[in-house]
Amino acid sequence: MTQPLTVLQSEETLTVPTPAVAVEDLWFAYREGSWILRGVDLQIPMGGFWAIMGPSGAGKTTLMRILAGLLPFPRGRVLLLGHPVRGELEPALRRSVGYIPQQLGLVRGLTALENVLLGSLARHRGWQTALGFFPRAEIERAMALLEVLDLADRADEKVFRLSGGERQRVAIARTLMQDPQLILADEFVSDLDLPRAAHVLAFVYRLARERGLTVILNLHELQLVQEFAEHVVILKDGRVVFESPALDLTWPLFREIMGDYEREALK
């Protein structure tokens, strides 16, 4: 996992004004009248490595899905890479935004390589790919990515046979295959133990630095946030209740913000 990432050179990129993500007064409800997000405001600069924290049920996943352009919202404004989000993202924007759901969303019955190739679908939406035929160049690109992620020898293994850590890397490879500028990952490492989580985050961090990617992660562990994130946002009851450079969020402060929630959860 130490080679430089030279495999991904996009042919066409969006012209991108800052910030990477701008959210203004965002409101959202799954059911009429019960607001999940209540006026979220957020500005995330290009190239940022941000963490979103908060008690479960705070609306972190919902916010992620909206930022990924997968969930229409009734009120507010969302700008992704400078483009306003309205319903379905147009293809160029779609491929610039990589989204990794909490359970990764890999197809278990396909091989690692096939799953990575799915990341190129935004570029090839025709019938050849629907029949399973991908351009040679894309297959080589996918293989190169698997090699970078130390998965070259697992390429033809079906995903259900892979370990948790291997699946995690397949999901990263699929997202990188899109050649995105923004990566959103929901509870990305919460299924891994702390050392493994740190390892994966270190890799993603280095990658983001090399390629100038913007990364937004939902994280649970303050330790990981302090070690890897530049900036942290805490969401509570659908509102941003705290925002600061990650190192300013100390344990006592974190406990104070989250505390009453933990106590309630224990009851």
């Binding site: 899905r65 997968l70 779609r94 759901p101 969303g105 799915l118 935004a122 629907a130 699929r174």
Partner: peptide, 13 residues
């Protein structure tokens, strides 16, 4: 549904 969502996320038809 997460798999379907991930597929929408990569722009699959």
């Amino acid at each position: 549904p997460e798999i379907l969502e991930a597929m929408r996320g990569v722009g699959a038809k």
